[in-house]
């Protein structure tokens, strides 16, 4: 029997994997993919809460639709920034895009 806890733990694991990816990845594209994993973990949590704890409403499901939209829009903007970045820096390695510090 799969309970709420299973879904929440899976969601939390996905979110942790995503943040780990944000930290260790050097490629900006890799970080973007990690971000998508985080959003998916959050989506899973929201749907699980809706199904198990609050089945009388649909807020959790509406949330997921909005989150997917927001994530897609963010990806579009990030890719636009990265294309321009690549034209100028000839790399999307975030360690090398470091003109400003302290």
């Amino acid at each position: 029997m799969i309970t709420l806890t299973h879904y929440l733990v899976l969601g939390a694991i996905l979110i942790c994997i995503g943040y780990l990816g944000m930290m260790v990845r050097k490629s900006a594209i890799g970080m973007l993919i990690s971000l998508e994993i985080i959003f998916n973990g959050i989506n899973l949590t929201a749907v699980a809460f809706n199904r198990f704890l609050h089945p009388d409403g649909v807020i959790g499901q509406i949330m997921v639709i909005f989150i997917i939209t927001v994530a897609a829009a963010e990806t579009a903007i990030a890719l636009a920034i990265m294309i321009n970045l690549f034209k100028k820096f000839k790399t999307i390695d975030v360690d090398e895009v470091n003109l400003m510090k302290w």
Binding site: M22, A28, I81, L85, V94, L99
Partner: peptide
């Protein structure tokens, strides 16, 4: 461009 990238990555996370 660097500002945009840094703001996006940190802001989104």
């Amino acid at each position: 461009l660097e500002a945009g990238l840094k703001y996006f990555l940190l802001g989104a996370s």
